[in-house]
Write a protein that binds this DNA or RNA. Structure first.
Lengths: 225, 225
DNA sequence: TTTTATTGTATACAATATAATACAATTAAG
DNA sequence: CTTAATTGTATTATATTGTATACAATAAAA
């Protein structure tokens, strides 16, 4: 029996170009939003009835997802959402540490006053949203997006986007961990203060430390349960 | 009159998938190798006769190159190889500084003895190739590739590849500048020594300094002639 | 202004990809 | 061993794309 993979609203339809492409993006969203979890099997027929197409475009979408690294296709067992092994997670976070640090450092040099105010505002809202991890996770996303925008470097954005798909595989938020949202907010505050000071090295350092802590939380969540 | 854009060997033919794709990769190579220089106009008909196809696949290739950011299409004036303005060059090198520093830092942690030996060997060959900028530029490329491989981080590679196209736009080597190859070799030596010591921070720092110098050379080459 | 070079647009036909369906092969469960 | 569920494969018709060609529109040069 198919579980509830469906989004409430204008689901089902997608005619940008080909059906295969539509299925691809729908499944990508589903994985990104955690409606399919890592390791879970994705059945062709199930997706086909869900999106009201035949199995052929689903299979085409599977091939794309495989080359994205989002699923693993094995003969006669079909598709499973990819799982990152410990090494991959470590490598991924090592890179995130570099990129977030860079973003913070660059932002310290280039952020406008409005952007800095907005970052503080996001932290205030985060304080208010205490106890609602979903809202907090969303505010967290906004925070990091604003940081990257304030960095004023289109190539930093490109580099970051190159990692987005892989990051989607572990989007089950660390904000579920008790106490994590509060420490995260404090870490963010240090970063924004450094940006306000215009101290690039300090912002870089605090951002790296922040991701370092996030890495620990992530690894604990994944491999030591 | 069409200039000599042709490669000597097995040119003309390319049938991987579609003609448009073939034209796209041929033009990409041509730009990367400097057979078309930034700002230069690319005429549809010229490319068509060169590669022995009609204008239609050439136009399709143009659209791809545009979305790669390699050419600029303006109505009724067609395609010109994109030029990076000073800002873009600065942003690009800022990112290169980060990525090369990271690669060197990671390499200090993960490089094998064989890889370190190979890096030294490349520098020896560079010493021998004195006075031959073409060979030296190639050795330089090998050096950086080896560095990235030794860093053992697939996401660093992804991030780096995301910038590759833009970098191609300024591949007219800085090695033409008198004295530049020698200083570059010395800077490389500092990096490899730090890697051999396993000193990650030092390797990172020296690599950043190296790119910093390269940036100066590049900007001087581009904007102060 | 007239001419020429070059790009944009339209058309026609062939080639290919897409999508649905039916059926065979394989695995895992009973 | 048999059966049920699921994936791989093959076959079709249809839609889309690729390609070449001819012609119109535009811009730059004479």
């Amino acid at each position: 029996m198919p579980k509830n993979k469906e989004k409430p609203a204008e689901n089902k339809l997608n005619f940008e170009t080909s059906l295969g492409e539509g299925v691809h993006s729908q499944l990508k969203d589903a994985i990104r939003e955690g409606r399919y979890s890592p390791g879970e099997r994705i059945r062709e027929a199930e997706v086909a009835v869900w999106l009201n197409v035949s199995r052929t475009p689903v299979r085409e979408a599977f091939r794309r997802l495989q080359s994205d690294g989002l699923i693993i296709l094995t003969p006669w067992r079909g598709a499973q959402v990819a799982e990152l092994d410990r090494n991959q997670v470590v490598e991924l976070y090592a890179m995130r540490r570099v990129l977030e640090g860079t973003a913070a450092g660059f932002a310290a040099l280039h952020a406008t006053d409005a952007e800095i105010d907005y970052l503080f505002e996001l932290l205030r809202q985060d304080e208010i949203a205490k106890g609602d991890p979903a809202v907090q996770a969303n505010l967290n996303r906004l925070f990091h997006e604003t940081l990257y925008a304030a960095a004023r470097n289109r190539y930093l954005l490109k580099a970051s986007n190159a990692l987005a798909d892989s990051l989607a595989l572990l989007r089950s938020t660390t904000y579920e961990i008790p106490g994590r949202p509060d420490t995260a907010r404090q870490e963010h505050l240090l970063i924004v203060n450094a940006i306000k000071e215009g101290n690039s090295d300090k912002a870089d350092l605090f951002a790296r430390a922040h991701i370092e802590k996030a890495t620990q939380a992530r690894l604990a969540l994944l491999f030591e349960e």
